[in-house]
Amino acid sequence: MPAAFPPRVCVIGAGPAGMSCALWLHNLGLEATLVDTEKSPGGAMLLNFLNNNWVLGQRGLSGLEMAARFTEHIESLAIPLLLECRPTRLARDAHGQFQLSLETPQGISSVEADAIVLATGTRFRGREILIGLPGFGQCDPGRLRYGPHCFTRLSMLAGKRLLVIGGGDNALENAALALDAGASVTVVARNQFRAQARFIERLQAAGHCALHADARLTALQPSPGGLLASLEGAAGQWQLEVDRVHLLAGYAPNTAFLDGILAAEVAPPQKDERGYLCGDALGRTSTPGLYVAGDVGNPAFPNVLSALAQGAQVAKTIEFDLNQTRPR
């Protein structure tokens, strides 16, 4: 049967890119449905605990607060928002219609669509990086923090010894905030530091702070005073006793789920060597009918602003593409 009109689009991922895409689809006259595995919409914004002054017009709001505003906008338009729903199969019939099967709290359900938007974002890399280190299994989990959680309860670091692992903006900003809270900080980066110069210069000039590039953690084990970290770098090997370890080692795309849900007639969309989805400038993937928006396809500059813009762009692309297939 021919596609129903207005066209139906299923957006997988209810972060800023997904919500922006659904909003634009709605305003362009298409039927959008948002699907997300989490209990609340917002994606990575739900883990942004600090006030974000990088989004125009949203000054002083945390990611949680911005997510609440975005969600209210979506709900005010009665755009269907299916939460706690895990995609289990994506099939396509002879007429090109997609059927997305979902595992929901109420059981198995499905959504039919003329196009699918993949806006599943990224996840922070955490415990899996350290789990193979000698001694890690015996360490007190309460002394370890990963990704965005490193930015919580910083006031408790006063007088403590902190080891930060990572060389990007998040790692060095975290180190700077820990110093402000009264901690002594050591930062270890596997390669050269790639953070903004202002962070590097500030930490280099600070007391109670040491920066080690081209170094790595080789073991982590309990000690009478906290944790004993074994490190290796250009200067050789050394050990450092600390009270807490913060791991800020970047992000990975949420694309692995696709490998297990695509039916034979749906070709896997192309990914790069890190697993990010490859799309053209307008958000089309290598698989007709599948589109990509937001951080899951943007390893170069992932952020809320680019996600919002890409969501809008993909909505316009879908409107154009589906209009080309309408009966005349």
Score class of each variant (00 low, 15 high):
289 G>D: 02
224 P>D: 06
151 F>H: 05
146 Y>I: 00
182 G>L: 02
160 K>E: 10
51 N>K: 15
192 Q>L: 13
150 C>W: 00
147 G>Y: 00
7 P>D: 14
323 N>W: 12
84 E>D: 11
138 Q>W: 10
323 N>Y: 09
206 A>E: 09
260 G>V: 09
165 I>H: 02
45 M>A: 08
39 K>D: 15
152 T>Y: 11
9 V>N: 04
150 C>V: 01
226 G>Y: 02
132 G>E: 14
83 L>P: 04
31 E>W: 04
160 K>D: 05
96 G>Q: 08
86 R>Q: 15
250 G>V: 05
166 G>M: 04
118 L>Y: 09
289 G>F: 07
281 A>S: 15
96 G>E: 08
40 S>K: 10
308 L>S: 07
87 P>L: 08
55 V>R: 01
99 Q>H: 11
282 L>R: 14
220 L>R: 05
13 G>V: 13
140 D>V: 06
141 P>C: 12
257 F>V: 07
212 H>Q: 11
8 R>K: 14
189 A>Q: 02
166 G>L: 05
186 T>C: 04
301 F>T: 13
226 G>K: 06
162 L>T: 04
53 N>W: 10
90 L>F: 11
35 V>E: 03
134 P>T: 13
126 G>N: 03
85 C>P: 06
13 G>R: 03
175 A>D: 00
116 I>L: 13
84 E>R: 12
237 Q>C: 12
46 L>I: 07
2 P>Y: 07
15 G>Y: 06
129 I>M: 12
62 S>I: 02
125 R>V: 14
203 L>N: 05
141 P>W: 09
283 G>F: 08
168 G>L: 06
229 A>P: 01
270 Q>R: 15
99 Q>T: 15
289 G>P: 00
302 P>G: 10
183 A>D: 01
113 A>W: 03
276 Y>L: 04
286 S>P: 06
